[in-house]
Design a protein around this nucleic acid. Structure first.
Length: 446
RNA sequence: CGGGGCGUAGCGCAGCCUGGUAGCGCGACGGUUUUGGGUACCGUAGGUCGUAGGUUCGAAUCCUAUCGCCCCGACCA
């Protein structure tokens, strides 16, 4: 993409309403525009990152054997009356009446609807296990939306639902989700720690939240410092291997890590003092096993191998997709702007032309632009007729992890400059070498 | 929902107390200049001062109502 052809309304000054750094940077980088309290338009740069995150979520869900579908944002109230939640959910549910006076609602979650889909189509244990998920906009009429996309009223969420014949099988689905989520967050450059949590209005006994450590997080967290050293890395996971998957879960959940909801001071005090940590975290996902809480009242039964009709065991699993943008920025930025991890960056590399209009420099940039595109990576070429300082400031603000700087001074020696956003370290090399280096770097993030 | 604050140009703000027909910086646009970290200068465009009533000869300014937004708390992916 050429910057002169793009729509990137960056702001030099910080809008007054933004308090936390991710919100400020998303506004300044031209990623979002607020339309009402907790409701945002996604401008091109923001949408690109949102799509990157969605893509990673989809890939990891498919890898774990989960199947995508898409449910509507609007749902009939009657479905929610069956589970009893139409009354229980309260003011957070946005209720709508259509022209025929039918009661509808903008879905805050989809347990009822997925259970309806399941009971209409699945009759036998032989069709289990089954995991269906979608990535769809949700609406929760928060009393006090704030912090940009971190606590919006409209938000994009991946929610998945598991159907199993018994508790053992359902717990394997739970564990499978935990591992797939760990992989998902790692690909986004995040360390998200699974913490034992409270179930809230979804209901259920077994539940973990995934928290990204950040001082601006809304949850207080207590943990053993050693958990931050745990990483999946590139190890092979066989999602069908119950014992293997459980072993990974045990590895990540044995050390103490809890939110204030479930904090146990006695257990915390048992941690060696030098490893005790109290901090704040951003919740970016939660997994639940809730048994037959919905299948019972909604009569989602299957025939088991004894010929008996039994309610299916369910779980639900969510990732806050739009919130993740805020979480990633909170975890990865500096005083100049965002620093995107390679896994989610909107463009692979920024090309800065230091002397727009100079024929040799322009030609070198054009050649580089084409060469990067030919590798399948997407460059953002700053071809504006502007000062170097302005171009660097824009690149730093929007946070592309790599930048290639092209100017007459370097070209005289046959080199361009490859700069890493995170460290600021620049290395001079030929244009060909810079492209080759980028290919190498991004090969690690596929 | 309790408490607090704010709505004036695209963004950041001043003017309001003490009524007299709106201003600054940044940005945008046109030029000149400059060219390896937000350059400098000249010029141009852009605002029924959130909205509705009221008081007044006259309201951004005073009064009333209303809408919206932000912050703290309680609540929450």
């Amino acid at each position: 993409m050429r910057l002169t052809r793009y729509f990137l309304p960056v702001l030099k000054e910080t809008p007054a309403e933004a308090q936390i750094v991710s919100h400020r940077l998303m506004l300044r980088a031209g990623m979002i525009k607020q339309q009402a309290a907790g409701i945002y338009s996604w401008l091109p740069l923001g949408l690109k990152v949102l799509r990157r995150i969605e893509q990673i979520v989809h890939e990891e869900q498919e890898r774990a054997g989960h199947i995508a579908l898409l449910m509507p944002t609007l749902q009939p109230a009657d479905l929610w009356r069956e589970s009893g939640r139409y009354d229980d959910y309260g003011e957070e549910m946005l209720r709508i009446t259509d022209r025929h006076k039918r009661e509808m609602l903008y879905g805050p979650t989809n347990e009822e609807m997925i259970t309806d889909i399941f009971r209409s189509n699945v009759e036998s244990y032989k069709q289990l296990p089954l995991t269906l998920y979608h990535i769809q906009w949700k609406f929760r009429d928060e009393v006090r939306p704030r912090f940009g996309v971190m606590r919006g009223r409209e938000f994009l969420m991946k929610d998945g639902y598991t159907f199993d014949i018994d508790k053992d099988a359902a717990l394997h689905a739970y564990n499978r989700h935990m591992v797939s989520y760990l992989r998902t967050y790692e690909r986004m450059g995040l360390t998200a720690i699974p913490m034992r949590a409270d179930s809230g209005p979804i209901g259920g006994d077994d539940t973990h939240e995934f928290l990204v450590l950040a001082s601006t997080g809304e949850s207080e967290v207590f943990y053993d410092a050693a958990v931050t050293d745990l990483h999946l890395g590139d190890r092979e996971i066989d999602y069908a291997d119950r014992a293997g998957v459980k072993a990974v879960c045990d590895e990540f959940t044995t050390l103490y890590a809890r939110t204030d909801e479930t904090h146990d001071a006695a257990l915390f005090d048992a941690i060696p003092p030098e490893r005790r940590r109290v901090g704040r975290g951003i919740e970016v996902g939660q997994i639940f096993y809730f048994g037959t809480k919905y299948s019972d009242p909604m009569k989602a039964n299957v025939v088991n191998d004894q010929g008996a009709r039994v309610p299916v065991h369910m779980g639900s699993h969510g990732i806050g997709v739009s919130r993740l943008l805020g979480a990633i920025i909170e975890a990865s930025h500096d005083e100049r702007g965002i620093i995107w991890p390679e896994g989610v960056t909107p463009f692979a590399v920024g090309i800065v032309n230091l002397k727009q209009g100079d024929s040799a420099t322009d030609a070198a940039c054009e050649g580089l632009y084409a060469a990067v595109q030919a590798t399948g990576l997407e460059p953002l070429y700053d071809d504006r007729d502007d000062r170097a300082g302005a171009k660097f400031a824009t690149m730093d603000l929007i946070g592309l992890p790599w930048r290639i700087t092209v100017g007459p001074r370097g070209l005289a020696n046959g080199v361009v400059e490859l700069t890493e956003r995170r460290t600021g370290v620049s290395v001079e090399m030929t244009a060909e070498a810079a492209v080759a280096r980028l290919v190498e770097i991004y090969a690690l993030h596929r």
